[in-house]
Simulated scan of single mutants.
Amino acid sequence: MGDAEQMWITVVPPLEDGGDDEAELVLIGIDPTSGDPGQQLVDVLLDRGHEGEEGVFYLLPFDLGVRYERDGDRLAVVLLTSPEVYDHMISQYRQDLAEAGAPLRDAPLVEDGVVLLRREIATDFDPATGTGDQPVVLLLQDGPAAEAELFSAFDAGEAALAVVGTWGEDE
């Protein structure tokens, strides 16, 4: 499956509060078993979370963030981390990814961040809200997801959801 097949604009039922207003969100599939170092690094970064309430983990603002880009009818989502977090993560947690991820670290920074992943699709969906860009929801599961089965793995406890806020928030 290509990147476009791992990005959806959809309602995310596990995040709904039961209200009548079902908001569409940007959902990105992340496969930690993929050979893509960006996906592997996103998975490792999510393990850096700090537990708040039981089962809810929070990342610091520059551990992982999202940036939206629009080019005509194409919406792109870019997942970023700070160079310091990237360097620490590689040296402390996943030295085996250092070589595979070197092109990510060596690429030009975007808004002072290392680009881990970029996905885009054709859509007229606008993720901007009155308070800025909305977060992105990551669906982490082994293997690529299919839209028809997006949340069944989560319901079965075989996948996890993570909400990632806008890059540069709460600087």
Rank of each mutant, 00 (worst) to 15 (best):
L150A: 14
H50Q: 00
Q39T: 02
R74M: 04
L117Q: 09
Y68M: 09
E24R: 09
Q134P: 01
Q6G: 00
V115M: 03
A102Y: 07
R119H: 13
V42R: 06
G52F: 02
V66H: 07
V85H: 08
A145G: 02
I30F: 04
L97C: 05
Y93M: 08
R48F: 14
L161R: 08
T123K: 05
E53I: 09
V56L: 15
P135N: 05
V114L: 04
A4P: 00
E5G: 09
T123D: 01
L75H: 08
R70C: 00
E111H: 07
F62A: 13
V56S: 13
P108W: 02
F57Q: 08
A100R: 06
E171F: 08
E171H: 07
Q141K: 11
R118M: 01
I30Q: 05
A156T: 05
R74V: 14
A156N: 14
L79I: 06
L15T: 12
T166I: 00
F154E: 11
V42G: 02
W8V: 05
V163P: 09
L60A: 15
G157N: 14
A162F: 12
G165S: 06
D17I: 14
L140I: 14
G38H: 10
D112L: 03
V78M: 10
V78E: 09
I121C: 05
P83L: 12
L15N: 10
E111Y: 05
E53R: 11
A4F: 09
G18Y: 09
D20R: 12
E53A: 10
A4W: 01
P61T: 08
F151T: 12
D133G: 12
E99P: 09
L150S: 02
I28C: 10
D112C: 00
Q6L: 00
A76Q: 15
M1R: 14
G35R: 10
R94S: 03
G38L: 08
R70I: 01
A122S: 03
E169I: 01
E169N: 06
P127H: 05
Y86A: 11
Y86M: 15
W8G: 03
L161Y: 12
